[in-house]
Simulated scan of single mutants.
Amino acid sequence: MERTARAADATPPVGAVAPPYDACFADVSGLLPGLPGQRAREARVPVAETAAPVAVAAARRLRPWRLLPTPAGTPFTFGYVVVLVVTSLVTEHAAPSLVHTLHQGSSTDVAHLLRTPVPVLLASAVWIAGGMLSPYAIGLVVVFTALERRIGGARTACVFLLGHVLATVVTEGAVGIGVLVGHLPDSSLHRLDYGVSFGVAAGAGALAGLLTPWLRWPLVVGVGVMLVMDLIAFTDPLTNWGHLTAFAVGVALWPSVRRWRRG
């Protein structure tokens, strides 16, 4: 009688709305341990809701103005570009004799590197051959803006200085050895050497390590072929060897810049 009475009590009254099948089945599955439970129905998200985040992410990736430096986003690159603009204006509008004196005083030649290595290495990096519309100037803006957004300003400055210093020491060291063994005249110890191209080459090599493979390898091959072609042209072999050295320094920094980006 007890079992029958409980079954009668479980009968819904007339006019009552029956619970959904899923709810009833969930209750029964709880009472019968051997019966597998029904899978929950997947919530259907409208296509517009799933497509919206993808569209927003794509729009963020395609923002062209992020290729330009800003005071807040990329302070090192922005400040460096301002300095180069000022020195480019001085080069363009000052008296040629004054410009030559400034360039000669900032030259990273062997004589200056032996006397005042640190000041001259820093001073040589504030001048740019060809002005702000030269290929290396445009490359500096694009490369170091992208690099600084990924690893920060201080580390971007380290990449630049490593390429600039190491490539300068290699090329000018070769000049010094050439003078010692008699293959170059003594005047080579005072040759004019300044600019940002070594640092830009190192930055391009380092940035390639942070890109996806379909961007990384075309950049490495393209820059490498361009530098080798410049070396084959033999117009300025020491400087061209310096560009290859600086680019190799940037590529060698891939493990470091990848750790810096994760950090």
Rank of each mutant, 00 (worst) to 15 (best):
residue 2 E to R: 10
residue 3 R to Y: 01
residue 3 R to I: 11
residue 9 D to L: 13
residue 12 P to N: 14
residue 13 P to A: 15
residue 16 A to L: 13
residue 18 A to G: 11
residue 19 P to C: 09
residue 20 P to S: 13
residue 23 A to T: 14
residue 23 A to R: 15
residue 25 F to Y: 13
residue 25 F to C: 12
residue 28 V to A: 15
residue 31 L to I: 10
residue 33 P to S: 11
residue 35 L to M: 14
residue 41 R to H: 02
residue 42 E to T: 10
residue 44 R to H: 11
residue 48 A to S: 15
residue 54 V to S: 07
residue 55 A to S: 06
residue 55 A to F: 06
residue 56 V to G: 06
residue 56 V to T: 11
residue 57 A to P: 07
residue 57 A to V: 10
residue 58 A to T: 08
residue 60 R to A: 11
residue 64 P to K: 00
residue 64 P to H: 00
residue 66 R to N: 00
residue 66 R to G: 00
residue 71 P to W: 06
residue 71 P to I: 06
residue 73 G to S: 09
residue 74 T to V: 03
residue 75 P to N: 08
residue 76 F to E: 05
residue 76 F to M: 12
residue 77 T to N: 05
residue 80 Y to G: 04
residue 87 T to N: 12
residue 87 T to M: 14
residue 88 S to P: 05
residue 88 S to D: 08
residue 92 E to Y: 12
residue 93 H to E: 10
residue 93 H to T: 14
residue 93 H to W: 14
residue 94 A to S: 15
residue 94 A to W: 08
residue 96 P to M: 11
residue 96 P to E: 13
residue 97 S to R: 15
residue 97 S to N: 12
residue 99 V to S: 13
residue 101 T to P: 02
residue 103 H to A: 13
residue 103 H to F: 14
residue 103 H to M: 14
residue 104 Q to T: 15
residue 105 G to Y: 04
residue 106 S to R: 03
residue 110 V to E: 00
residue 112 H to D: 00
residue 112 H to N: 08
residue 114 L to E: 02
residue 114 L to W: 00
residue 115 R to G: 00
residue 115 R to M: 00
residue 116 T to M: 02
residue 116 T to I: 04
residue 116 T to H: 04
residue 118 V to M: 04
residue 119 P to Y: 03
residue 122 L to F: 13
residue 125 A to D: 12
residue 127 W to K: 07
residue 131 G to N: 13
residue 133 L to D: 13
residue 136 Y to H: 09
residue 136 Y to R: 09
residue 136 Y to I: 07
residue 138 I to N: 08
residue 140 L to P: 02
residue 141 V to E: 02
residue 142 V to K: 00
residue 145 T to W: 00
residue 146 A to N: 08
residue 149 R to I: 03
residue 150 R to P: 09
residue 153 G to L: 02
residue 156 T to Q: 10
residue 159 V to L: 14
residue 159 V to P: 07
residue 169 V to L: 15
residue 170 V to M: 10
residue 173 G to Y: 05
residue 174 A to K: 03
residue 176 G to F: 01
residue 178 G to Y: 05
residue 180 L to G: 06
residue 180 L to D: 01
residue 181 V to P: 01
residue 182 G to Y: 12
residue 182 G to T: 11
residue 182 G to M: 01
residue 186 D to E: 09
residue 189 L to H: 01
residue 189 L to N: 01
residue 192 L to A: 12
residue 193 D to W: 03
residue 195 G to S: 01
residue 197 S to L: 04
residue 200 V to T: 07
residue 200 V to I: 12
residue 201 A to F: 07
residue 202 A to Q: 09
residue 202 A to G: 10
residue 205 G to W: 03
residue 205 G to Q: 04
residue 205 G to N: 03
residue 205 G to F: 03
residue 209 G to K: 04
residue 212 T to C: 07
residue 217 W to Y: 14
residue 217 W to R: 11
residue 217 W to I: 10
residue 219 L to S: 09
residue 226 M to N: 08
residue 227 L to Y: 06
residue 227 L to E: 05
residue 228 V to H: 02
residue 232 I to G: 03
residue 232 I to V: 15
residue 235 T to D: 15
residue 242 G to P: 05
residue 243 H to Q: 04
residue 247 F to R: 03
residue 250 G to R: 04
residue 256 S to K: 11
residue 256 S to Q: 15
residue 260 W to I: 04
residue 262 R to M: 07
